[in-house]
Amino acid sequence: MAAQDTSKQVTRRRERLDRGIKVRSEDIYALNSWREALYLLAPRALPVVALVLLQLLAPEYWQRVLISTTVFALLAISWDLAASSGMVCLGQALFFGVGAYLAGIMNHYLGLPPGLTLPLATLGGGVICTVLLLPVLRLRGIYFAMFTLILPLMIERIIEATKVFGGTEGLSGLTPFSHPLWESFLTMTALWVALFGLRRIMASDYGLVLKGINDNDRAVMSAALNIYRYKAQALFLASATGAFAGAFMTHSYRFVGMPVFALDYSILPIASAAVGGLGTLAGPALGAFILVPLSEMLRGLGGLRIVIYAVLLVVFTVGLPEGVFHYLRRKYTQFERWTEVGK
């Protein structure tokens, strides 16, 4: 009755295996040797060291670009955190703008120094944005996204029409940071705290719930968890991160005005996430570090800059849809080889 084809035939297939060092460096065993410990440490420490060195050694213009890149990386992390929790935002400019205006208002009208406006605007921005979006937390997908897209545009028009907070002129002459180096290292520290802190949260049981909401919110509800509470908390974390970026830029530019609600602050984080790789927080940050300097490098091309930028974006998303970060991580932890399959 049994009818197996027994003819011997050998073909080859590509096999993907974890690197030995990856397996050896899992858990506490990583402490067995420097090599294993370095294997774990290198991908985390190298970007930190590289960024510090760049910030210290790069020409002044590129130092400014780095600061701006770091700010966009924060926005990209904020976008990815919300998206990983089932809230795809099209309006990162809302978080950025609210944080920026809060810092500007506190500095301009109350005379508070950046040391106070930054934390207050971060927390206040987080609370305001969360409260603004609370009524739409039940919406999913494109409906939630549309609302987040409209809100910053709406606030922009309100400021324009009512002429509050300087109206179209904005608030200028705000207190700058005391030292350029302090400015660079503050934004870098914020980036690492957000990146490593939020990654830690997403790797915990709490993060599992957030990812679960993204995957299948009804299944999470069935596990007796109030998904709207979790979504509100994730939204607070995401909006506080974005608000910090906005507040920082207010003091960096010594100005806050309607442009802080511009579409750039909403689109670039999404493009960064698409290029870097979704769902890892590090991927979108890496994407920002590719796209923002790239945009600056192409500045000399004038009008063609946008065309080339768009083409490169297409190349990245079509050629490497998993994202640069996922690709690099896979290559770092796994290797491939041909293997024979005998029949």
């Binding site: 009818a3 084809d5 003819s7 297939r13 096999e15 029949k343």
Partner: peptide, 19 residues
């Protein structure tokens, strides 16, 4: 179907199946 083999990465889901 002649000698069908399907691998999901390194896991063999269908092994030399003919029908």
């Amino acid at each position: 179907v002649k000698g069908l083999m399907v691998f999901y990465e390194n896991a063999l889901a269908v092994n030399d199946l003919s029908l």
